[in-house]
Each structure stands twice: as C-alpha cells, then as structure tokens.
C-alpha cells in the first residue's frame, strides 16, 4: 500500500484563528488536487507559536460543533488532515494539541507531553502537560503523533512503536538558532539527526513538518522531511519558505526492511518493563526519577 503525504510547512498569523483556518482550507484543497491522501500541518498551525497571554483567547475544542473544527472536519471528507492547535479541556486547562481528522471524524488527539520551559522556551508557563502517548488506527495503518519537544525524549517514540505505530507524524515550530559556517542552522541539523535515528532504530516511517516565518526576532526554518524505515531521506522541503511538499510512502518497505532487520521482533519489552520497575522502585538511586 502506498500513502501520499503532503507536508504543509506554513507561516501563521499570530493569534488569528480565522486567517490561519483559511490558509489550512486552501492547502487542504491543494493537497487533494495534487493527489495527497494525508496533509500534515506543523505545531500550533492554527494559532502561531509564541502565544503567551493569547493562549486562552485562541483555544478550540476538536469537535464538530467548534467553529474552527467544523470546516476542517468537512474538508477531511476528501483526505486525512493533521492540524495543531490550542486545546481547552472541560476543566479549562490548555494544551498544545494535534488532531488527526479523517472522513469527518476526529480519530485521535495528542496533547504535547513535554513542554520546553528553558532558554527561549516558556511553554510550561502557559500550557498543561498532556498525559498519554498512544498510537491509533487510520485508513493507512497505525500511526503515532508527537509534537516537537516530545520527540527530543527517547521514550515517546519508543512507546508509539510498541503501541503499533509504523508511521510517525512529528510536528514542530522550531526556532532557528546556532549560526556557524555550516550551510544549515544547528537547530535544523539536530532535528534531522534524531528524525533519521528514529526511522532507523524503529524501522518505521518518520514524517516531520516544521513552520516557517518569523515571530518578532525568532525565525522558523521549515525544511519538512520524511525518512523511510532504512533511515534514508525521502524528501526535504525548502528552508525558510512556505511549501506543500508531497512524498509517497511505500508502506511495503516496512516488510522489506523488517525482514532484513528484525529489531521490532527482537525488542525485549518484558526486560524493559522489569528493569524500569527495578530502577524506578529503587529509592536509593536517582537515575530515571
């Protein structure tokens, strides 16, 4: 089976849901016209990234009666859509979330579980931590979604892998930094290292979308990318500019790579659980706690 994914690396209007929604609907239409089965937008694609006190004002609920999700769900009748937004739960906590929409339904919502609050990041000040990491079934197989800092921790992709995900959809709003003599920023190099590593270690597809544009002095570097289960780069979008980059994932590659390299078959999950239990219950040690 083949899955054509459109990587939508967009700029956003900070705090303007309506304008961002319009851009989403136009790109969903374009992705459909170009033959995509799935279009993936970057982190906080509906709102912009450095929201600070705008956070409560741009929150949505991923339901059919939400004015932002209603047209997105209608658009998902044509192809599957992944968007990212500020989610407000029933107790009025705010999350950085991503929703997978398919055929008019919300198949899954992932709430970002790691909120960077250091250096130039201040997410923990404004957002609540998500509490689950789960794979889910789609018309194209079992998928897992993570948002930016989530995949800077090794465990969320590992959990998705064990939960059955063969395609990882990663979304970022990654501020560009680390200018040196090299042709790309350090932040771009770091992210692409780990994307390739996950594809290789988990013999899975890794798809990453990242924002472009500026928010005050921060730049976002784009360069959406997809890696196959051998860790090979399939496609890379342009740096710094908006683009809709299509890539065809040949899902049969999972069969071929895992025949050669049965890392999933040999993964010793009971050993991991046993050792984790031991490490976490040993009160005399600090590692892992």
């Amino acid at each position: 089976m083949k899955l054509t994914v459109a990587l939508a690396q967009i700029n956003t209007v900070l705090g303007n849901l309506q304008r961002n929604l319009e851009k989403h609907l136009a790109l969903i239409q374009e992705a459909h016209a170009r033959g995509a089965d799935l279009v993936v937008f970057p982190e906080l694609s509906l709102t912009g990234y450095v929201l600070q006190d705008l956070t409560p004002a741009v929150a949505c609920k991923p339901r059919g009666d939400d004015p932002v999700f209603q047209p997105l769900l209608a658009a998902s009748q044509k192809l599957d859509v992944v968007v990212s937004f500020v989610e407000e739960d029933v107790r009025n906590r705010f999350y950085i979330s991503a929703a997978y929409l398919s055929r008019g339904q919300v198949l899954h919502v992932h709430r970002k579980v790691y909120l960077p609050t250091y250096g130039l990041f201040d997410e923990g000040r404004f957002f609540a931590w998500g509490d689950t990491v789960q794979a889910f079934d789609t018309p194209y197989g079992r998928v897992g979604m993570l948002i930016c800092e989530d995949f800077w921790h090794a465990s969320p992709p590992y959990l998705l892998w064990l939960d059955g995900a063969d395609v990882f959809l990663f979304m970022s709003a990654s501020p560009g930094r680390g200018l040196s003599e090299r042709p790309e920023l350090a932040s771009a190099r770091w992210v692409n290292h780990i994307l390739r590593a996950y594809a290789s270690l988990y013999t899975s597809f890794v798809v990453h979308t990242n924002r472009v544009g500026f928010e005050d002095g921060l730049n976002f570097w784009g360069s959406a990318a997809a890696f196959d289960p051998n860790g090979d780069l399939l496609v890379e979008g342009p740096a710094f500019e908006e683009a809709l980059t299509l890539v065809e994932l040949d899902l049969n590659q999972l069969h071929r790579t895992r025949s050669r390299l049965p890392l999933l078959r040999d993964e010793r999950t009971a050993l991991v659980q046993r050792e984790l239990n031991r490490i976490l219950s040993d009160r005399s040690r600090n590692s892992g706690r």
Binding site: L179, S180, P183, F214, G217, N219
Partner: peptide, 18 residues
C-alpha cells in the same frame, strides 16, 4: 565564522517580515 548566505537569507527575511 558564519555562513554568510544563511545569515543574509534570515536577516533579509526578518526585515521584510517585521
């Protein structure tokens, strides 16, 4: 030392955008 092409691209983009 910096990659001047990259710096130029980011800084002209920044001026235009902001």
């Amino acid at each position: 030392s910096i990659n001047t092409e990259l710096a130029r691209r980011i800084l002209t983009g920044f001026i235009r955008s902001e």
